[in-house]
Amino acid sequence: MTDTDGAVVEPVRVSFTINGGLLTLELDPRVTLATALREHLGLTGTKIGCDQGQCGACTVLVNGRRINSCLTLAVMHEGDSIATVEGLGTPEVLHPMQAAFIEHDGFQCGYCTPGQILSSLAVIEEIRAGMPSHVTGSLEGPVPLSDEEIRERMSGNLCRCAAYPNIIAAIRDYAGAKP
């Protein structure tokens, strides 16, 4: 690893927890969290759709909060707890949100799907915690778990197959919300 003049870019050591397991990596400091997951750890469930924070396909949870993992460097996550889609469920034992996505056909090509699923789990927590959004009527009091709130908060996760109505149906079903 080098800079312009051929000088070596020293790898940087970083330790974090992924899906409950502690890992230590030596990484080029330019490696994003998304690339670290995909290219260094083989966790390719985290997708890269734009690599510039505009599509949400790379969404992961860091210490419980959703972020675009393409917009953050891996070495910035010393000590963090990272959750990816691989930690949710398996094809044999699905997480209920994953099962709801299948039941409601909340995807077609499936490429944005891990990001949609992780984002939707975080959205439900954000609403339950009373965090307001652009469409929240009042900053005081509880936030309704409405389709409008879910749609607004999910809008950072693009789906070009446009499975949007089915994704909302899946989230609503999982959360026990009414349309």
């Binding site: 083989g42 469930g45 889609v85 699905l94 996505f101 299948i102 039941e103 499936g110 799907t113």
Partner: peptide
């Protein structure tokens, strides 16, 4: 019928082009 490739897609186990090992 729900997609037969659903379980691998929703769990991030479906490998697309660059992800093939």
């Amino acid at each position: 019928i729900s997609r037969t490739d659903g379980p691998v897609k929703v769990t991030g186990r479906a490998h697309y082009s660059l992800e093939r090992q």
